[in-house]
Structure formats: structure tokens, C-alpha cells
Design a protein around this nucleic acid. Sequence first.
RNA 1: GGACCUGUGGUGCAGCUAGGAGUGCACGCCGGCCUGUCAAGCCGGAGGUCGCGGGUUCAAAUCCCGUCAGGUCCGCCA
Length: 582
Amino acid sequence: MTSATSMRTGLCGEVGVADVGKEVRLCGWVARRREHGEHLAFVDLRDRSGIVQCVVEGSADLRSEYVVAVRGTVRRRPPGMENPALATGEVEVGDCTVEVLATAEPPPFVVEDRAEVDEAVRLRYRYVDLRRPRMQANLRLRAAVVGAIRRAMDRQGFCEVETPLLWAPTPEGAREFAVPSRLHRGAFYVLPQSPQIAKQLLMVGGFDRYYQIARCLRDEDLRADRQFEFTQLDMEASFVTQEDVLGFVSEAVLEAAETATGERPPAIDRMTWAEALDRYGTDKPDLRIPTALVDLSEVFAKTEVRAFTAPTVKGLRVVGGAATSRSGLDALVERAKALGAAGLAWFRVTEHGEDGLPGLDSPLARVLSDAERAGLVRATGAVPGDLVLAVADEHRTACTVLGQLRVEVAGTPVGQGPYRYVWVVEFPLFESIAADGHPVAAHHPFTMPHPDDVERMKTDPLSVRSQAYDLVLNGWELGSGSVRIHRADIQARVFSALGISDEDAASRFGFLMGAFRYGAPPHAGFAFGIDRLIAVLAGEESIREVIAFPKTQSGADLLTGAPKELPASQLAELGLRTAQPR
RNA sequence: GGACCUGUGGUGCAGCUAGGAGUGCACGCCGGCCUGUCAAGCCGGAGGUCGCGGGUUCAAAUCCCGUCAGGUCCGCCA
């Protein structure tokens, strides 16, 4: 493939030593110019591929970001004049004639990566921001990753099917964006939170391997890793088990990662949800951090220390953490309380004392027994210079609080270090018990319970495992999936456990349940967030950096001004009347 | 719904703790000089309701209250 067009012979960044002597015509933006009177000017010409220096004999009369076409001859730079900082630095385009294709006002900020610009300014002038190498690289990486995913899914026999954006409200789960119907006044479509139900219908429809690069929309508050609109690889397959799905998705993710990094990651690790909670205090463990939570309940089983009298005591070794200042430790204690713990114990580990016991610098050091001192240090593996943090509480609280501190104290930015993928399997079927006494579905109500646990759905619902699984990368949840219920009897039992009546089920999911009456194959699927995957692979902290036109945290589009009020005529046509704005 | 951080020429900052004239720095911009620069250099210049509103004060970028915008997080995200 050539990048030549009727207007240009190639791209700026592709000009090299091999082109010496050739006449070229290049198009792009004036990145920078260095003029030496009326006799000589250097113009750095930029297009999406990079920058090349063009030499104009005479006065150039150009301004930053003018769009120009340059005709000239590629030549080696004079000895000593090469610029190693530039990919094209060994050559230049000489004897240039320049045609201005479009003039430009001075840009609001310099089109260079090193210029740090307020994000609000970048978003208001996103079309300028997109010229910067960082955004060019991120969006091109995105395109490459999506291409790799499509290839992997095609290769595995999946069929891409589009599903509707205008869908029916299903009063469950995330807030939906509503779209008023002009032809049916007072009635609304909603934009899909995901194609979940549509893809299950496709399974009933005999598309036994479906996938889609699907836009999903959720009207929930935005975050660095959450936008109203995001893109998922959505997939579903029939006559498969969980193992098959993990294999399909792994193939797509590993192919995408190889495309992005040039290196195929090793097979993806796997752990149960219970293990993730116990060792990392979260369902999205960051395995780049070498330390894990340690159970100290045994050490403090018979403790006299009231602070450690709790169902579970969890400890965390912070390598080199003994240097933490007292104010820093106080802040950690406050943070632990804010996260829901009753308190946080800390121990600076020092050299062994004369009694042969590890030295502990802590307000609690005096009250610990010798066995507890030794056990604390032995269990955590701490050495002098380390810090040990401990939380005593209910098992879940102790784990989650310390797990959060593990990330905050020992973690690194998401894009740094190795990429550690992990499957978290055997999620609980229910995540909590609601005020009405019924359990709340952890994933969605079509998730298949673990066959060994079905009988406990009524008696001990929180102990029921499901055939649901998450894919996690460097502490980011990339996506989740499950084996779906395809049998009416099991579905009825789950609805019953959830407290969903037959009438409720019929009104919410009636068309899906109806479809299942006509022969539903066993099926399972997955969906993962492509924005998040690309952000991590691009080393970005926010998915906004891998989206061309993202919204701000308040959901505004600073470029278009959306959301905006509609003219009264349009409201009338839609049969809408608005309340007083807040 | 809540917590915290930020808001000063086009851009990025300093100034705010301890009130005293829109003060400073870097980049950019405009003009001039300059035939090998490359984040060009040198000389000169323009450009600001200190986010907005109110309060305290003889005096507010600075202190107080409110509000708006951007960001990070909690809630929320089946």
C-alpha cells in the first residue's frame, strides 16, 4: 500500500536516505520554521507520520499550522548537520517551493507532546489536539488493536452482527439514556447499556458464534475509566462451556496485545474470586505489585489486644515502608477509616533486639506478646526497613481496605511495568442481601449458578458461586462474562431467589423468556472494554486519551457544547415538555 | 448526593501562608536583524474584567461566603 495520492508522493515521516535524489511532493502542517533573513528558511513539515525538514532558498512567509504543499528534492544533510532527534534527521528536502493550501490562525497551544495543556483547552480544540503525536499514536494504536480483535474473532469462526441502538427499556441495572419517540408520543426507546439480551436472542437464532465491536451507553457518573459511551468487544457462543469462552477471549486479547506491544503475552493466569479477595482484597487484582495480603488471624487468635479482636486480621508488607513519616502513617490510618475499617495498625520493622525478636516501632509494639511480634513478622515476611500494615475486622472489610491500601501505597501507574492479565473465576452469584431480604445479582439474573451450589440458593445464597468470570489487566477490570441460564427451571429458581415474580420477569425480560421457549441452546459469552484495554496498552491513565471526542466528568462535550436545550418546536414534535432546569 | 485539588495575558507557571499600583518567569504571538538552523539566535513590542458574584478592609489575585468550570475519588456503574 502506498500513502501517495494525487496531491503528494508520500508522507513526511517516510522520507529517508533511500529517497536521496528523488523529487518529492509533501503535504502537511507547518510545525515550526527557522528563518535566516531573506535567503534561507527551514520549515519543519508535519503530517500524521512525522516531521521532515524542508529547506527554502529565500523567504518563506509561513505561519504555524499553515497547511502547505512542498515540492523539493530529497538530499543528505551536510555533514554534521544531521538531527538524531528526528526520524528523518539524516535527510532534508532541498530547493523547496511551497504552496499554501490553507492559512491558519495561531493555534491555542503548540502542537507538540511536550506542551502540557489543560485538558479543558485540549477538549475545546480537540481537532488541534488530535494533531499531536500522542493522540495520533493512541488512536492509531486503537485502530490496530480493534483490527487485531476482528481478525482473531473472524479466525475463530465468529460472525459479526450489529444490534439495535434503539432498544426497549429494561428496568434493571445501569441508568439508561432515553430517546423519545416522535411517532409514538409519550413512549421511549433506550440506548443499550450493552447488547446483552440481543446477543442471547442471536444464540436462540442459531448464530452460534457472534461478536460485535459494540458501542454501549450508560447514564452513570463519569470517571477516568468510564465514559457515557464506551466500546466493547461483545461476544457470545452456543454449545460451549466457560473454558471455551475463556479460550476465545484470550485469543482476541493476546492477539491485540501482540499487535500493540510486538510481543505475545504468556497464557493468562487464573484465580478464583475468593482467592482474589483473600490475597488482594479486590476482584481486580494488580499482579504487578509483588506483595499480597497475609492472614494474621492465627497469629492473633488468642490476643489480649482489643484492636485485634476481630473475625479476621489481615496484614500487608510494604517493602521499604519503614521510612514513611509519622504524618504519612497518620494519613494512612485516616484513609483506612474512610474506606470503612475501624482502624489501621502499623509497624515499622527495625533490626532485631537483644532478645532475638524483630524490632517493631509502633504504638502497639508494647502490648503485643513475644509470639505475636514474631508471628507478625514471620507471616508477612517483613525485614528491617519494611512497614507492616494490619486491619482487623470482618473478613471482607479487612481484605478490601488493606487491598485498597496495597494499591495506593505500593502501586504504580497503570501503564507502567509488565502487563499482567488474570482471569478471575467463580464469582459469587449474589453480591449482597437487599433490604427486602432477597439477594442481589452480582452479574445479571441470567448467570448460571455453579452446579455444585445450586441447592444452597435459598438456604445460603451468598455462598453460591456462579459461572461468571472477569478479565483483569494491571488492576483494571477489562470485562466480564458468564455462562447463561438456558433452562426455564433453573431460571425460575434464580428469579425466585432474587424475589422476581413471574409477572416481573415477564414484563422485564418477557421477550427473552419467550424466545427461550422455542429452543435455547446452552450458551455463554463475554464483553470487555476496548477503551480500557487500549488505555493500558498506551500507558494512559484515562480512557479519554484513547477516545477522539470524549466528554468531561460532568458529561459535557466542550467542543460541540452538548448537551443543549432543544428548540420548542422540536420538543413539541416529540411531545415533550421540560421541567424548570435545576 | 458528597470529599478533595485546580482556575492569574494565547499556553504553562510563580505571586496567595503574612492584603499595599497587574508584579515576574518560560513558551507562543507581532515587528526588525540574520545564508545551516533544528525547542534557531539577537533586538524591540503588543497582549490580562487574576473564572464569576458577593462580603470584610482605607486597600483584595491574596482573607471569608457563594457559584461556575476542569480534574481525582466515594456513592453510582445488574
